[in-house]
Amino acid sequence: MTTDAETVPAPLRWAVCLLRIEAVGLALVAAFLIWSDLTATAADLTSALIVTAFAVGGAILLWVLGGALSARRAGARAPAIVLQLMLFPVGWYMTQGGLGWVGVPLIVLGAAVCGLLVSGPSTRALGAR
């Protein structure tokens, strides 16, 4: 008898792990935004709440996609890749704004997760062609 961890190939397990780490990181950002929304004097409360909701939703989505990929649901791969590709422009503009120490790792992270998700073992495990 094999366990689920044995049937999921290593590249897919790493992709799921990185997606879950991203989800936790974004949840921490969302927690900071919630605290800021509650304590700061905002010039535009609506915009602040929208940004906070976007961060909360992104964290939830990353976590759910990680779970779906670990359950080998092929339909979760494309949305996960799209979210990772969104890290490229974010990382680029952070680098251009003088935050290269954050921007470059974001670009590398997005590329790494995309590579893991489109690798041969992950593709075979998800049943995609």
Rank of each mutant, 00 (worst) to 15 (best):
L69Q: 02
S70I: 00
S70F: 02
R72H: 01
R73D: 00
A74Y: 00
G75Q: 07
G75R: 12
A76W: 00
A76L: 01
P79E: 02
P79Y: 02
A80H: 03
I81L: 13
V82N: 06
V82Q: 06
M86A: 15
M86G: 12
M86R: 15
L87M: 14
F88H: 10
Y93C: 08
Y93I: 13
M94K: 13
T95F: 08
T95Y: 08
Q96G: 15
Q96E: 15
G97R: 15
L99D: 12
G100P: 01
G100H: 04
G100M: 04
W101K: 12
W101A: 10
G103M: 03
V104N: 05
V104Q: 08
P105S: 06
P105A: 08
P105G: 06
P105Y: 05
P105H: 06
L106G: 09
L106M: 12
L106N: 13
I107N: 09
I107Q: 14
L109C: 10
A111W: 06
A111C: 08
A112C: 15
A112E: 05
A112F: 06
A112V: 10
V113A: 09
C114P: 06
C114A: 11
G115V: 05
S119W: 05
S119V: 05
G120C: 05
G120M: 07
T123E: 04
T123Y: 07
R124D: 09
R124V: 07
R124I: 04
L126Q: 05
L126N: 03
G127R: 05
G127K: 05
G127L: 00
A128G: 10
A128K: 15
A128C: 14
